[in-house]
Amino acid sequence: MTTRVRRRTIAAFLGPAVAALALVGIAPLLYAVWKSLHYFNLTKLAQERYVGLDNYAAVLTDAVFWQAMGRTATLFAIAVPVQIALGLTIALVLHRPGLTFWKTLTRLSLVLPMATTYAVVGLLAQVMLNQKYGVFNQMLGWVGIDAINFIGDPTNAFIAVILWDIWQWTPFVALVLLAGLSTVPPEIEEAATLETRSNWTVLRFVQLPYLVPSLVAVLILRTADTLKLFDMPFTMTRGGPGAATEFIAVLIERVGNRQFDIGMAAAQSIIMLALTIVLARLYIRLFYREVR
């Protein structure tokens, strides 16, 4: 049974939130669409003019844009499978009974990386990965590997961003998958462990089907967050050296904030937004069936 209420009551409850979110979330977006149809550079304001879809055409044929997209996709394609593999291992260990105190402690420490200010994560990388003063290179030295110039070399800087992304988000994946594992009915799991001694079989045929929703959530959210990724590479390398770690959000920030070409940045961000909305729709369709 649902409570019947007057329209005005509903409007009074929802109105303020909807108005506020429209003001900060939708109005700027419309303004961005409008600006994306103009040549608009903050340093050449006199030359502002309507250019139709020129900015979009320029973005879609711009090698720099596609390279940034490619880098973003590469980061995702390397980091996320590693995060899932490590995360699943951690989740399976935490899911097993016993060692309760240790496991609580581990679960608490897993919360730390994903809550850490993303900008600070990038700064930490600067300090820990420095070729000469960095502790990471010192540790590599202990196992006989020569110090690596992580920040200064294009390939290594990219690897460093991947490593750092893995550090920050593996715990998140682990905890999401752990939540997924807890949806497996314990009776089924127990019955299966009596049937077979192989953990692999239990994982493949009993636990995995229950993990599918969590895995899909991880994939969609990691895609969205990789598209958003700005703070960590920005504080770590500023997108450099060259453009080696210029991911899509870092590129847009450079075009808008350091080249002042806001019309172009707007066009780039609208294209990115289109992609994001597809992801969001997918996510919502898969996970919020019950509210329909």
Partner: peptide, 14 residues
């Protein structure tokens, strides 16, 4: 919910 997915860089310049 969709707001969870929108990158701040889209809104920042406007």
């Amino acid at each position: 919910i969709t707001n969870r997915f929108v990158s701040p860089v889209v809104l920042a310049f406007p």
